[in-house]
């Protein structure tokens, strides 16, 4: 039975008048990759800072492996590796020296630090640049150095804030693979925040959609889809020679909830799955049916919808 590694109960964070995080409940199990998906300013970073004990919640409790980061931040920081969106490096130190500093701050001796730094730099593909000043690293290199920096303390949990920001596409693929390997090989628990749906979609076991400080929906991708869509409605796109008239015909059908015209198509929302009835009706009335196809909402649409102001998807068709 997997036990919960990260737990948030009723967490509220207020900045003067603004509520950054609003009654957030979240449970993440061991060995899970959890994606916090949300637009900028949704409160993702604030949540992460609270988990690291850098910010105190206004209300509610947080626990990481049973320890509260608000009360015992140092205990928590021993277990948690944190990768910020912009990795800060000491520019006058070389990449390796930067890593060794972190290692030594975590209590490793300089010999251990040296070995570990070499090994990790190899792992993230920076072995050749390790003696170069970190200030001269490119954005992607800094991010990889950041990952090595996160791993050097041998954490059991990794928290990443927008880890894919500003890396080129190939870099992102490599990066995501690296994260997956970490989970598979070391059973690490990973929490990552992003506003890039596709990155999250690729590696996360579960996703939470986070808007305006609230967790709107959560689960793996298929349950998320179910949750967000009005589960008992089906949507079809129909193209005929005379859309206006066909629309009226269809509206008369008992199981049709709503129809809408757009882009030369009729969008039909139906209460039950179509078994050829719609096509039959159209043809029987003497219209020409060019195409009919069911519309599936991908996460993309769901995401768009939420970011534009919330509500369920079906509401677009009125």
């Amino acid at each position: 039975m997997a036990k919960s590694v990260i737990q948030l109960t009723n967490v509220v964070k207020k900045y003067k008048e603004v509520t950054a995080v609003d009654h957030l409940n979240l449970t993440i199990k061991k060995g899970e990759i959890y994606g916090l998906l949300g637009p900028n300013g949704a409160g993702k970073s604030t949540t992460i800072f609270m988990l690291l004990g850098l910010t105190e919640p206004t209300e509610g409790e947080l626990f990481i492996e049973g320890t509260s980061p608000t009360i015992k931040p140092i205990e928590v920081k021993k277990k948690v590796g944190f990768l910020p969106d912009h990795v800060g490096v000491y520019e006058n130190l070389s990449g390796k020296e930067n890593l060794m500093l972190t290692a030594r701050l975590n209590g490793f001796s300089s010999r251990e630090a040296n070995e570990k730094a070499d090994q990790l730099l190899e792992q993230v593909g920076l072995a050749e640049a390790k003696h170069k000043k970190a200030g001269k690293y490119s954005r992607g290199m800094k991010q990889r150095l950041g990952l090595a920096d996160t791993l050097i303390k041998e954490p059991s949990i990794i928290i990443m804030d927008e880890p894919t920001l500003g890396i080129d596409p190939q870099g992102i693929i490599d990066f995501l693979n690296m994260i997956k390997t970490l989970r598979d090989e070391h059973q690490m628990t990973i929490l990552l925040s992003s506003h890039h749906l596709h990155h999250v979609q690729q590696i996360c076991d579960r996703v939470g959609i986070f808007v305006k400080g609230r967790l709107l929906a959560e689960g793996d991708l298929s349950t998320l889809q179910e949750q967000l869509l009005d589960d008992h409605s089906y949507v079809y796109e129909i193209e005929t020679n005379r859309n206006e008239d066909v629309r009226k015909v269809l509206e008369a059908l008992p199981h049709i909830q709503a129809t809408r015209l757009h882009d030369g198509m009729i969008e039909v929302k139906s209460r039950k799955k179509d078994n050829g009835d719609i096509a039959k009706q159209i043809i029987e009335k003497g219209y020409q049916l060019f195409s009919i196809r069911p519309v599936f909402y991908g996460l993309d649409d769901i995401y768009q919808q939420y970011f534009q102001g919330g509500g369920t998807l079906g509401e677009t068709i009125k």
Partner: peptide
């Protein structure tokens, strides 16, 4: 300078007071 360089976040996420 630590703040502007964002290194403060890195140092503060290490287990030190």
């Amino acid at each position: 300078s630590e703040k502007n360089n964002r290194t403060i976040l890195r140092i503060m996420s290490q287990p030190i007071p």
